[in-house]
Design a protein around this nucleic acid. Structure first.
Ligand code: MN
Ligand code: MN
Ligand code: MN
Ligand code: MN
Lengths: 223, 223
DNA sequence: CAAATAAGTTAAGTTTGCTTAACTTTGTAG
DNA sequence: CTACAAAGTTAAGCAAACTTAACTTATTTG
């Protein structure tokens, strides 16, 4: 049975290696992600490889074995279901749920998380729009997400994913009425500074480059 | 900030020293309670005393300082609110909630537990009938609990507390329809084997000595 | 391509929370 | 009041998960 440290490690490797880019997770990256020294990561990599949870070539990179991947998916499932539960049932704001879920994910039996899953009606996405693996570790079908930066002027879109690590930004978004599944229309794009002018709830609204980078959308018919 | 081990330790000392008897908690007792060697307990006692969380005289006993007591009460609050939440909201049986709460109590922010408290409507007792400290660490007013063993023949009583560590017994009680707040009437007491014959939901029912020992009641007018 | 920089590893040491074994103190029963 | 058992402590050691410092390998860039 993996420890908390190992769970966090497996999850970080999984999320990086399945994020889209083709670069494999490396020591420094995981070290920054988990706020742990590179030395400790290097050591943990060796141990997890010995346990058969990941494969690893010195100085190259690492990726999870099926066993490691399955464990990572269980942790991710717990994380995202907790976020959903805290948000929908206990009415915690979407900027607060990540930190709590980061701990709870390691202290929740499979039995309990299934109860939570059922209570919520087996949701497919968490409050930030990330997909929730089911009890078998299966992800919901892929959606064709688009970075907001590559949306087209005059296009109508729905907010499908918002990065979950920046509470200040998320609070700001809530304040201006931009939440998950909000419908927007792109009014104008400013290439020189990356800002985007959108229509949101009937209001014209300007989004900074930093914000634009943290949002993904799906095209829809009309706003 | 106390670690998980320290929280469990403080909680165990508090619960023993506030259980009614006059004997102070000792090394062996806590060791058995937490399933840890006496040596480890002895060591931890010294460290907690250095931290000012308990006072302690070698070879005698220990009791919590106000600081230690306040920490213990916070953990107990989290434990009992989690039990209540898992039982009432997620419909887990009262025999299952203790184990889950034993872990969750150490990984729940004050903010989150207050949300749970509010969601439940600030309950005063957990599913086993134990009192729940409020956010300030105040316990609800004392109730005059009676061991079922000292109930009187022909008396009417309400089940006010059931020991929370024996899932098999609790499952059996659920099966025969005896739950927290059930009303009963004592039909007959058997001194030679400690069994008690009661009326429960209109049915005559026999409770073994082992069961009788784990139940506390309050006298009421009529069953 | 050489040198500088970035990435990764190894070594040595720390802290926490445990273990077992050997010992000391205290309480109790004859 | 003694001796024996129970309770408690001390000592030594271990494993997990970290740290920092010194080193090695890989990558970038002028
Ligand atoms: Mn998250
Ligand atoms: Mn985590
Ligand atoms: Mn309990
Ligand atoms: Mn606990």
């Amino acid at each position: 049975m993996p420890t908390i440290s190992k769970e966090n490690y497996l999850k970080a490797v999984f999320l990086y290696n399945n994020r889209g880019g083709e670069q494999m997770a490396g020591t420094t990256l995981i070290a920054n992600e988990l706020n742990i020294s590179k030395a400790a990561i290097s050591d943990m990599t060796r141990r997890l490889a010995e346990e058969g949870l990941l494969t690893y070539e010195k100085y190259k990179g690492m990726h999870l074995t099926p066993k490691g991947q399955s464990l990572a998916l269980q942790v991710i499932r717990k994380h995202r279901l907790w976020e959903s539960f805290l948000h929908k049932v206990l009415k915690m704001s979407w900027s607060e749920v990540h930190v709590e879920a980061e701990r709870l994910e390691h202290h929740t039996s499979d039995y309990l998380i299934d109860k939570i899953d059922d209570y919520l009606g087996n949701p497919q996405y968490d409050p930030h729009g990330s997909p929730i693996p089911d009890a078998k570790g299966e992800m919901p079908p892929d959606r064709p997400l688009l970075p907001l930066a590559s949306a087209e002027v005059d296009g109508a879109y729905q907010i499908a994913h918002v990065h979950d690590r920046d509470p200040q930004m998320m609070n700001y978004l809530s304040r201006i009425g931009l939440v998950l599944n909000s419908k927007i229309k792109v009014l104008e794009k400013f290439d020189f500074d990356g800002c985007i002018h959108i229509e949101l709830n009937g209001q014209p609204t300007l989004l900074s480059e930093k914000i634009v980078e943290q949002i993904k959308v799906i095209p829809i018919e009309y706003v």
